[in-house]
């Protein structure tokens, strides 16, 4: 295959991939675009979520077998309470354990007295706007320790989806440059527009601190 034919095939594939990856990602793009706007505009009345939250307080009983390590202990409590989610903020003493379990739109804060086998579960549920907001940021990242990985399977799945969408958007950007370059003679303003975008974005990323 000659060099020219190869380039022709690659640019053709690039165009097709640009179209189909874009179509595949369209709902994800809308979700993250809209939830991003919600996060930056907390004053939008129609999307109020915190004032509309539902709170529930439940007395719980748990039976804790002896000799469990901390992870087994948390798993036992979660399975007895029939709840699942990303576990955070674990504070454990010899007598009690406090932790939170979250999935987008729902948080449970649990206190369990290990000696008495009793405890309290405080639940917070958000409306659809609250769910959208938390979906945008739900990656299982631990603020205090960046090395801690998500501990819930679905957090890992959602985080992988976020990575894949980001990779898809990077591809869409790069492939758009290739597509434009091929027809640059008909769209000569492209140079100016692309450079303007890069200068403006670069000003924020690199130049501000100089």
């Amino acid at each position: 295959m000659s060099y020219k034919t190869l380039i022709k095939k690659l640019t053709y594939s690039n165009r097709r991939l640009h179209i189909h990856i874009g179509l595949f990602l369209v709902l994800f793009i809308w979700l993250f675009s809209f939830s991003g706007l919600l996060l930056n505009h907390g004053n939008w009345k129609f999307a109020s979520f915190w004032d509309e939250r539902k709170e529930k307080r439940t007395e719980i009983t748990v039976s804790i077998p002896a000799g469990l390590d901390s992870i087994q202990l948390l798993k036992t409590i979660l399975s007895q309470l029939k709840i699942a989610g990303e576990v955070n903020n674990v504070k454990m003493t010899t007598d009690s354990v406090d932790f939170s379990v979250a999935y987008p739109g729902h948080v449970s804060n649990i206190h369990a007295d290990l000696k008495k086998g009793t405890g309290i579960q405080k639940e917070l549920s958000y409306n659809v706007w609250g769910k959208l907001r938390t979906l945008h940021t739900f990656n299982g990242a631990n603020r205090d320790n960046a090395d801690v990985e998500p501990n819930w399977l679905l957090t890992r799945v959602w985080r992988f989806s976020m990575d894949a969408i980001a990779a898809g958007l990077i591809f869409l950007s790069v492939s758009s440059w290739i597509m434009w370059y091929k027809i640059r003679q008909n769209y000569s303003w492209g140079y100016l527009v692309l450079i303007a975008g890069f200068v403006l974005a670069g000003w924020f990323v690199y130049l501000l601190k100089l």
Partner: peptide
């Protein structure tokens, strides 16, 4: 679509790269 896409693409790169940074801070 072409011109707006070209202008926005560096910003899309900022947002996309930052997702990878946020998800893999460790």
């Amino acid at each position: 679509h072409l011109y707006i896409g070209l202008f926005v693409s560096p910003f899309v790169l900022i947002f996309s790269i930052s997702v990878l940074v946020l998800n893999h801070a460790g």
